[in-house]
């Protein structure tokens, strides 16, 4: 399956002056197409999109609302399956995995940061960060220690026993980042992680993601319509009308 894969990706995925050479891609996608049927009309959300996500790099997926960037993220994050095309993560074709195998793959390799944080409201911050580790065979004491470590890394060690409703939006997103990273995934998908935050907090969050990426060698994929957040040395995939756009 991998032999069928045929770069170049650089032309699609790394646009403009921010595009570095892709030395070690962890995600490769080729000719991804996603169509929906809405009432009686067939809608194409993505059309033949190809690209790569490099290891330990931040990749921004940008584009106007409704352009298909979230659809691309959902497919890369294995929350959705493409109508056609292939998705390879760590050299494994994951385009057509069963629901169960996809869940297991996500648990091992993908972390998520959502626009509205999506923390579990009845759990404390520590428990929220600890939560994804339930998928691993880790003793509860070790789980707790690891959650504490990551909460400390995002600067929230003093709030561990609070509930999500008791902290600010920016702090919640920090917890969400700690939760996404605590399993030490190959890649973190962040869908509009700053949409509900003010400008300063948004920049702090992007900086935090960038720092964690460097410390943990994790690939970060950030979907945003705010191009001002794009950091230097990041890769950019610009989606317009369901297709990658050249700048």
């Amino acid at each position: 399956m991998n032999s069928a894969y045929n770069p170049p990706f650089e032309h699609d995925a790394h646009i403009g002056s921010f595009a570095p050479l892709v030395e070690e891609p962890v995600v490769r996608f080729q000719n991804l197409t996603k169509t929906y049927r809405m009432d009686r009309v067939q809608v194409t959300a993505l059309a033949n999109v190809s690209g790569v996500i490099a290891k330990a790099e931040t990749t921004f997926v940008t584009g106007p609302s409704g352009s298909g960037k979230s659809t691309l993220l959902n497919i890369i994050g294995m929350l959705d399956q493409p109508s056609s095309g292939t998705l390879t993560i760590l050299d494994q074709d994951v385009s057509r995995l069963s629901d169960r195998d996809a869940a297991d793959f996500r648990a091992r390799h993908i972390g998520f940061v959502f626009q509205s944080f999506n923390l579990i409201p009845v759990l404390s911050l520590r428990e929220n960060v600890e939560f994804p580790l339930l998928n691993r065979k880790i003793a509860s004491r070790a789980r707790r220690a690891k959650a504490m470590e990551y909460l400390d890394a995002v600067g929230l060690a003093e709030f561990v026993d609070r509930r999500p409703g008791e902290i600010s939006g920016g702090q919640r997103q920090r917890v969400a980042i700690a939760r996404a990273l605590v399993t030490e995934p190959t890649m973190v998908i962040a869908d509009e992680p700053t949409a509900n935050l003010d400008t300063k907090t948004s920049r702090d969050i992007i900086a935090l993601l960038d720092r964690m990426k460097s410390e943990l060698s994790t690939s970060i994929v950030i979907c945003t319509h705010d191009t001002s957040l794009i950091t230097p040395a990041s890769a950019v995939i610009n989606i317009v009308d369901g297709q990658t756009a050249q700048e």
Partner: peptide
């Protein structure tokens, strides 16, 4: 529903 989606996204099985 959103919590269920989140849990599933985090890699938990049905």
């Amino acid at each position: 529903v959103k919590e269920i989606g989140t849990i599933r996204a985090l890699g938990f099985r049905k």
